[in-house]
């Protein structure tokens, strides 16, 4: 990884932080409805893992799937930020044409297979995507990002078992931010180290610092190489922290300001910025310029696009329920 790549990665993480901050503002202005789950604090995980995956190459991409905290995963996989923002605005130009919203970002053209609101549901879907890759004989893999809370669903155990039995090319990324909505992991989960839980299925697994993108990338590369080489599934756990509440109506009464401050000392953007400055790759003044450019892009391109885009037409309400152009040979009707 050269200096330009490192600068780009820093820029990406700052972009994700400011993108999410801007969605927060738009939510407060009631431009965005429903639920909104922000990724602030966890940026190094998706950025680092997906930097090591095959992304941005359209149909050849690895498959990526996640829960409802999905904006950053979608963008890093290859979705256009303006389309993600337009989706949050419920617009026809949104990545899911305004039908999905924040929790259901999709970009099939980049193999970003969605955000899902049922905790733990992406586990089997990811294993299925991996089964598709294996069956078709491509060297793609499926990458499933979920939080620690998802590991208490039955789908976790069922899927880990089948992924191992069938030797599927799937990487499970556990973003352990220690909170299942508002319940701390030590009040809900018998085994705190999540990577240890998959030893029940004899699956390769490891745990790493999720606040340092260099560590994330190094660990992810090994895991992705393992999965891509046909050795089977891998479960990788990153210790991280979500700065904001679970969703927007969360007063965070379940944790202390001290705990939050402790984690923010190891902020992923702060760590990486200091490292790049120390290495002489970037100057403090460049960061300001970078932030300004990002804010301009968000305001003048992304928000503008979302604001000015049309809403879906009411007459299209029932479009996309089923295949809109079904083949009459299979679908019928029986009598014309």
């Amino acid at each position: 990884m050269n200096d330009a790549d490192k600068k780009r990665l820093l820029r990406e993480m700052i972009f994700y932080r400011r993108f999410e901050d801007r969605t927060f503002e738009a939510y407060m202005e009631r431009k965005i409805g429903g639920f909104l789950h922000l990724y602030t604090g966890q940026e190094a995980v998706a950025t680092g893992v997906l930097e090591m995956a095959r992304t941005g190459q359209g149909a050849d991409n690895d498959y990526v799937i996640t829960g409802y905290r999905d904006h950053v995963h979608a963008i890093k996989t290859g979705a256009a930020p303006r389309e993600v923002m337009a989706e949050l605005y419920g617009k026809e130009t949104g990545s899911s044409k305004g039908r999905g919203g924040s929790m259901h970002i999709f970009d099939a053209s980049q193999n970003f297979m969605g955000g899902y609101a049922l905790v733990g549901q992406p586990f089997p879907l990811a294993a299925g995507l991996a089964m598709g890759c294996k069956h078709k004989g491509t060297d793609q893999i499926a990458i499933c990002f979920l939080g620690d809370g998802a590991n208490n669903q039955g789908t976790f155990h069922e899927t880990m078992n089948m992924a191992k039995v069938w030797n599927l090319p799937v990487l499970f990324v556990c973003e352990n931010n220690q909170y299942a909505i508002g319940t701390h992991i030590n009040r809900s989960t018998a085994v705190l180290d999540q990577y240890k839980r998959v030893c029940a299925y004899d699956m390769e697994a490891s745990q790493h610092d999720g606040m340092d993108i260099d560590i994330v990338m190094e660990a992810s590369k090994k895991a992705i190489d393992f999965v891509r080489s046909g050795k089977g599934p891998y479960f990788i756990e990153f210790m991280t922290y979500r700065y904001r509440g679970h969703s927007m109506s969360d007063a965070k009464g379940y944790r202390t300001k001290e705990e939050e401050a402790e984690w923010q000392k190891r902020d992923p953007i702060k760590i990486y910025t200091e490292r790049l400055i120390e290495a002489g790759i970037i100057k403090a003044a460049d960061i300001k310029t970078m932030e300004k450019e990002i804010d301009d892009e968000i305001e003048n391109d992304i928000i503008k696009f979302a604001e000015e885009s049309p809403e879906p037409k009411v007459e299209d309400l029932t479009k996309y329920v089923l295949d809109d152009n079904p083949d009459p040979r299979w679908v019928g009707p029986l009598h014309k």
Partner: peptide
Amino acid sequence: PERIIDTPISENSYTGIGIGASMAGM
């Protein structure tokens, strides 16, 4: 066995795996 797949007794997740496979073109 790759095309006639005996599953464990895990209806929700093997259905989910089938759904995921269908999303990948199967």
